[in-house]
């Protein structure tokens, strides 16, 4: 039972990171119907920005190193996400889906290998002491402060996102565009700006996830974004693509399931388990846990 609880704790902190990445996928998919393959790489860039801030600047060594790294990485990733959208995706708004998808893959490879060219392919680790690596025990379950912070920051960011989407004018525009692009345009909503704003939000969350992964697992490399990117997409599909609460639930579930499989002897089959779940979900309930089904029109 203790082991099970321990796995749940580990799974939740892993899962909240997946959830942060999955939110970007689900928002972008909801609004432009694009699997943004470059999203995992934005997360990777976020991790590297955080690394640079904590290692090379004076902020990084102060008490506010973590906050500084988090905020700067989020801003950098938001700018990057909007630039990518403007340069690579916007001209293809009316092209076939496959053309946009190939472009997204191109952007993803470009980010990976350009960064690799400059920083090398090796792994790097954050300087020690950005966050306290102490831990405390509750009923035999070891909980690290880092895990608590990862979960708390994720929850805070998700609440913030939910507030932006539900309560602000820009969020209302986002929901309108994802519901019906043409109708939204007729109502005077600037669709291009709304799409850019969606990329901005998603990329900022991915940047935050990158910094937290860098601190929590303490190892970053230029190709780190691929697998978590795919898994976060699985999480988004699992929760119901296009649904923000779905992405959160999906991310947490995938994280917990993955940790449980790994914890109970299947560590080699961890990735396979995630994809098997994906295929099962797609076959049984293709709209995911919280997705709405839309009938096909003739």
């Amino acid at each position: 039972m203790e082991k099970f609880a321990q796995q749940i704790v580990n799974g939740l902190s892993q899962g909240s990171i997946y959830a942060l990445i999955a939110l970007g996928y689900t928002m972008v998919y909801g609004i432009v119907k694009l699997i943004n393959f470059a999203h995992g790489d934005i997360y990777m860039i976020g991790a590297y920005v955080g690394f640079a801030v904590t290692t090379f600047t004076r902020f990084g060594h102060s008490r506010f190193g973590f906050i500084a790294a988090l905020v700067i990485a989020m801003v950098a990733c938001a700018v990057l996400g909007v630039c990518i959208e403007r340069i690579a995706y916007k001209p293809l708004r009316n092209s076939s889906r496959i053309a946009v998808l190939i472009t997204a893959i191109g952007v993803s490879l470009f980010l990976d290998y350009t960064l690799m060219y400059f920083v090398g392919a090796g792994t790097r680790s954050y300087p020690p002491g950005v966050l306290s690596d102490r831990s405390f025990t509750v009923g035999g379950v070891v909980i690290k402060y880092q895990q608590v912070i990862v979960v708390l920051v994720s929850i805070a960011l998700m609440i913030l996102l939910q507030f932006i989407v539900k309560k602000t004018k820009q969020g209302k525009a986002m929901r309108a565009v994802s519901f019906d692009k043409e109708a939204a345009q007729l109502m005077g909503i600037n669709v291009d700006r709304t799409i850019s704003f969606t990329f901005l939000l998603g990329s900022a969350l991915a940047g935050a996830a990158g910094v937290m992964v860098g601190i929590y697992f303490n190892s970053i490399d230029p190709l780190m974004g691929m697998m978590p990117g795919l898994k976060a997409f699985v999480a988004a599909v699992f929760g119901g693509i296009g649904s923000i609460p779905g992405a959160m639930v999906g991310g947490l579930s995938i994280g917990v399931i993955e940790t449980l499989v790994a914890g109970y002897g299947g560590s080699l089959y961890r990735d396979a388990a995630v994809f098997a779940i994906l295929i099962l979900v797609l076959i049984i309930k293709p709209t995911g846990l919280m997705g709405k089904s839309t009938g096909s029109k003739v």
């Binding site: 092209s95 053309a99 190939i102 191109g106 490879l109 470009f110 290998y113």
Partner: peptide, 19 residues
């Protein structure tokens, strides 16, 4: 060293100009 970067750029450019 830059072959993957060129490959990625090529992908983006081809899709932008000849989808």
């Amino acid at each position: 060293r830059v072959n993957m970067i060129i490959y990625a750029l090529l992908l983006i450019i081809i899709m932008l100009f000849r989808p």
